[in-house]
Design a protein around this nucleic acid. Sequence first.
RNA 1: GUCUCAGUAGCUCAGCUGGAUAGAGCAAUGGUCUUCUAAACCAUGGGUCGUGGGUCCGAAUCCCACCUGAGGCACCA
Length: 564
Amino acid sequence: MNDQATVVKALLPVLDGTLDEATIQKLIEVPKTSNLGDYAFPVFTLAKTYRKAPQMIAKELVEKIDASQFEKIQAAGPYINFFLDKPQFSHDLLHEILTTADHYGDADLGKKGNVPIDMSSPNIAKPISMGHLRSTVIGNAIANILRKVGYNPIKINHLGDWGTQFGKLIVGYKKWGSEEAVKADPITNLLKYYVRFHQEDQKDPELDDEAREWFRKLEAGDDEATKLWSWFREVSLKSFMKIYDMLGITFDSFNGEAFYNDKMAEVVQLLEDKNLLKESQGAEIVDLSAYDLNPALIKKSDGATLYITRDLAAAIYRKRTYDFVQSVYVVGNEQRDHFKQLKAVLKEMGFAWSDQIHHVPFGLITQDGKKLSTRQGRVILLEKVLNDAVDLARQEIDKKNPDLPNKEAVAKDVGIGAVIFHDLKNDRLNNFDFNLEEVVRFEGETGPYVQYTNARAQSILRKAGAIELDAAADYTITDASAWEVLKALGNFPQMVVRASKEYEPSVIAKYALHLAKTFNKYYANTKVLVDDAEKPARLALVASVSQVLVQSLSLLGVNAPKEM
RNA sequence: GUCUCAGUAGCUCAGCUGGAUAGAGCAAUGGUCUUCUAAACCAUGGGUCGUGGGUCCGAAUCCCACCUGAGGCACCA
C-alpha cells in the first residue's frame, strides 16, 4: 500500500538515525492543500542537530531520498512534500475496498473482549425525551464502532425502574389517576401524576411523607405496591420499545435499577469488611478526600441505599458476568463527579479493574438555553420529534421525487436519519439548544446530504448494470479530479480507529460528510458513464464510495436508502 | 466559593496530539438541470480565533490570570 508508511520508510535511511521511526511518523502531517502534496515532513526539529537553516536541510534531504515509490518529492521552504503515486494508489485501494467489502476498515484492537455499554436508560413512567436520545444514539454508535475494531459490545439499557419517585407516582395515581387513563395513554398520564405531585407538594408537604411510606412498602415487597410498580414498568417499557423500533436500536439487556436490589447488601458488606464505611451525619459514607472528591453516600440516614450503591453493585455484577475489558457509561457530563466517585470507591475496594471503567460524557440539550426538566414539565418528546421529522421528509419527497417507490420507508430512513446524524455530527460534549428546523434539515452538512450522495452513486451503478468483481481488472485512475475522493476513501480505516479510541461518533459523521463532499464535487465535473478505457475504474470508484458511505452511516445507526 | 465543559464569520460549528495564506454549512448575492437524481455543484462578500500575559524557531491549539455562558458540588438519578 502506498501511504504514510511509505513516507516513513523513505525518510528513515536518509536521516542517519537522528530520528527514530515513531518520531518520524508523529511529525508527518497532511498539508492543507493538495498542491503541497499528500504528506509533508517539517524539518524544523532537525535544524538544531544539523545547525543549518530548515530550508537548506529540506533541499538537501530531497536530493537523497529514494523517490521511486512516489510521483514526486519536493522541498518547499522548511517542508518536504511527498506526492503519492496516484495510479498505483487508486488501483491498490479500489481493489482492497471492493474485495474486503463490509470489512473494509475492520481492525482487531479488541480481540473479541466484552464491553458492556450503559446507555439510554430512561426512567419508567416518564417519556423518552430528546435528552435520552443522546445517550441512546451515541451509545449505539459507539457499540457499532467498537464492534468494527474487534470488541464485543453489550448494550445495556439500565432502566430507571426503582427509587423514591415510585412512591410519588403511586400517591399521584391513587389520588388523581385511574386504570382506564393509564391503559389509554400510559406515559402521558403517569407523567401527569408525577408533575402534579411536584406542584401539590409545594403547599402540602405531607404528600412527601406519603410517598416515602409507599416506597418503603414497595421495598418491603407489599402486594399492592409491587403490583402497581410492575404494571407501570410493563406499560412504560412497551411504549419505549415503539421508539427504539423507530430508531432501529436494540439492546442486549434491560437490567435496570430494580435488578440490583438484591445485590446491594453484598456491596455494603464488602465495604464494611474493608473498613471503608464511615458514619457521618447519620448516613454511611466512603471518604474520598484522598481523591479530592466528595464522600460517596452509600446509605441515607433512613437506611435506604442510593444511586452510587446501585452503580457499585452493577459494576461488580458486570465484571463477574461479562469479565469485561472495558466498561463504558454513556451518561451526561453533569454526572462526571459521580463516575469519578464510582471509580474511586471501586479502587478503594481493591478492584484493579476500576481503571477499565470509562465514563463517556456528552453535553446538554437545552430549550431556550435552559436545562430540560421533567419535574417542571419542560420536556421535548422524542416520539414527537421523530414523527415530525418523518412527516417533513415525506413532504420533501413529494416535492422532489414524487414517483419514488417505497416512499414511506424512505421518509422514515431520511427523517430519522436526519435526527440521529444531527445528534452525532458535533463533539459529544457540545451543548445544543433544541430547534426542530435545525435538527431536521435536509441540506448542507446533514445526514440526508450523505444519504443523497449515496443514492446518486447507486443510481449510476444501476444504470451501469452489474459490475463484476475481477481481481485482474485495472482500476488505475489517472484523472486528477478523482484524487481527493481516493484519498478520502483511503482514510476510512484510521478514522474508525480514532473514533473507537476517543469514543467519538462525530469523527465518523464528519468523515462521511467529507467523503460525500469530495464525491459530489467529482460527480459534478466528471461523467462516469462514458465508454473509455478508465470506465471500469470509475465505476469501481463509485461503488467504493457508496460502500464506504453506507458503512459510515451504518456505524452511526443511520440507514442509507438506494433511492430517495 | 469551588470543580467541569465551552467562548473561532451574522447564526451553527470544523480545525487531529503546536506547524505552511484560519476552514465548512446555514443565511445573503450571482451563476449551473435537452447530459449519471439541483436534497447537488460553482462563484462573491464576511475574522483583533473572549481579554491580557507567558513558553516556543513557530500558538486558534500548550501554561497562568481574568471576563462571559452552561452544568455539577453528600441523603434525586
